[in-house]
Nucleic acid binder design. Structure first.
Length: 453
RNA sequence: GGAGAGAUGGCCGAGUGGUCGAAGGCGCUCCCCUGCUAAGGGAGUAUAGGCUCAAAAAGCUUAUCGAGGGUUCGAAUCCCUCUCUCUCCGCCA
């Protein structure tokens, strides 16, 4: 969420920044709501002040045993007026909040301005793609020929976009996440976390997935909906909230996490951290669930885009002055994994048009896939600045002893399934076997090659 | 799932309708006293908003005692709903 002060002081500036990422800020609606809000809030608070002082006088009179009838008469009509103004104010503020919750973060000054992903900028490259003297296969062909990857059966079990791995491949998949988690906790100073895979709407609102991206999530309804217990809508109020807002306010459903960023970052929701507990660095290995609405037709083959995949996620909660330093550091931590695995990659600075909703700046790490003859995203590292912290009320006590919003960063370190794909494709041999990267062999009981059993 | 108890400021804890944003204590900060230590004395110590203001400072003001709603001129206190915590029983990995 953006700082509303920023929008009040210079909405034009904010709108221009948002326009670079292809977002049209609803300026007219915002200003209308703001004018109305200001009027109503002033008016409502005036009424409240009057009521409070009258009530105090009544109290004083009664304790002295005097008659308070004349004061009572004075405020007789205040109640209704206040009720109306208050409800209307609530309605306006809810609308304003609703608007604000849908506005993406503004890009940092260093982010390249662009209209599409084609304008992302390459920052650096690591490693040299291997040249093959035989025709390379993609991971599906390799895995199926090894008899360790079985999409038809996964489809039977669940449907499209799920995968089934067995034997040494399943083990390699597990080895990867262990290796990543070990590296980040033992070498990069992250605290390992075990987190819930089902989270509430409040948490998803905190990191920015809700309310705007509900369609991308898997929702797990509770048996009792709460909806049925509400009175009929006309009885709620004449100023009833919008239907979406109403639904949100009683949403006690749980959602499967689309990334561990949600539970990890929300650890600090509604907290005031001490300055000396920063930076707070967390790593977790979790499954991630995405319904990927709107992605139909893209990456339908193989395990690049799945409803369920595993990821080791890095989250840093930092002092606002340190967050860009931290972004470089965190991106480096993710890169380190690819370096240890000897997988060639490049780092891209996403342009304004390609960044996610909550990010102020994002680096994507793309790994080389020989069969596709291109680099494909395997990690995304973002500085969200105070955007999520503002939604989460995540603060720390600053040098002056005042609570101040934190900055949050997150990055994949790495997406396990896609890393597995990269290993299968980059380490394939002409006999159909796949070499196992050195660093993983000790996690594989010394095994150095995947072969057909 | 059944039965019961509870939720107040950083912590403990008082408060069942009237200057209660909330006694008291602990903790913390500053000051005084003190040869050191110990003890003592004094002051301060929630958060988020709004308005005035070019801004800062300041002032005025609103809200918040688990959450939401209700009763009332007035609610931490009364009523309703929900959430969470604890104890016991059942079930379960």
């Amino acid at each position: 969420m953006l700082d509303i002060q920023l929008l009040r002081n210079d909405p034009g500036h904010v709108a221009r920044l948002l326009a670079t990422r292809g977002y049209a800020f609803p300026m007219a609606e915002f200003e209308t709501l703001e004018v109305e809000r200001k009027d109503l809030q002033t008016y409502t608070q005036e009424l409240q002040a009057r009521r409070n002082s009258a009530s105090r006088q009544i109290g004083n009179a009664k304790t002295r045993g005097e008659d308070a009838a004349h004061i009572l008469a004075e405020v007789a009509n205040l109640g209704d007026e206040l009720q109306q103004a208050g409800t209307r104010l609530q309605h306006i503020q809810a609308a304003l909040q609703h608007l604000l919750l849908h506005v993406p973060n503004v890009p940092h000054g260093s982010v390249p301005v662009g209209k599409s992903e084609a304008e992302n900028q390459e920052v650096r490259r690591w490693g040299t793609p291997r040249s093959f003297d035989f025709s390379v296969e993609d991971h599906v062909g390799i895995g199926e020929r090894l008899g360790l990857l079985d999409f038809p059966t996964a489809t039977k079990l669940s449907g499209a976009r799920f995968s089934l791995m067995t034997g040494a491949l399943a083990r390699l998949h597990r080895a990867l996440s262990q290796f990543m988690l070990d590296t980040h906790t033992l070498e990069h100073g992250y605290t390992e976390a075990y987190v819930p895979y089902l989270v509430n709407a409040e948490s998803l609102r905190g990191t920015g997935q809700l309310p705007k991206f509900k369609a991308d999530l898997f929702e797990v309804p509770r048996r009792k909906t709460g909806l049925a217990e509400l009175p009929p809508r006309d009885e709620i109020h004449q100023w009833s909230l919008s239907s979406e807002r109403q639904h949100e306010s009683i949403d006690d459903d749980l959602y499967l996490i689309p990334t561990a960023e949600v539970p990890l970052a929300n650890i600090v929701r509604d907290r005031i951290m001490t300055a000396d507990s920063l930076p707070f660095k967390l790593a977790a290995h979790t499954p991630c669930f995405r319904s990927e609405a709107g992605s139909y037709g893209r990456d339908t083959r193989g395990m690049i885009r799945q409803h369920q995949f595993e990821k080791v996620e890095l989250v840093q909660i930092v002092h606002p002055q340190r967050s860009y330093e931290a972004l470089e550091e965190l991106t480096g931590h993710a890169e380190k994994i690819l370096q240890k695995l000897e997988l060639p990659y490049r780092v891209m600075a996403l342009c304004t048009a390609d960044m996610g909703f909550s990010a102020a700046k994002t680096y994507d790490i793309e790994v080389w896939l020989p069969e596709q003859n291109t680099y494909r995203e395997i990690s995304s590292c973002s500085n969200c600045e105070a955007f999520q912290a503002r939604r989460m009320h995540a603060r720390f006590r600053n040098e002056k002893g005042r609570p101040e919003l934190l900055h949050t960063l997150n990055g994949s370190g790495l997406a396990v399934g896609r890393t597995l794909v990269a290993i299968l494709e980059n380490f394939q041999n002409c006999d159909g076997s796949v070499s196992i990267p050195n660093v993983l062999q000790r996690y594989m009981g010394g095994l150095d090659r995947l072969r057909k059993p």
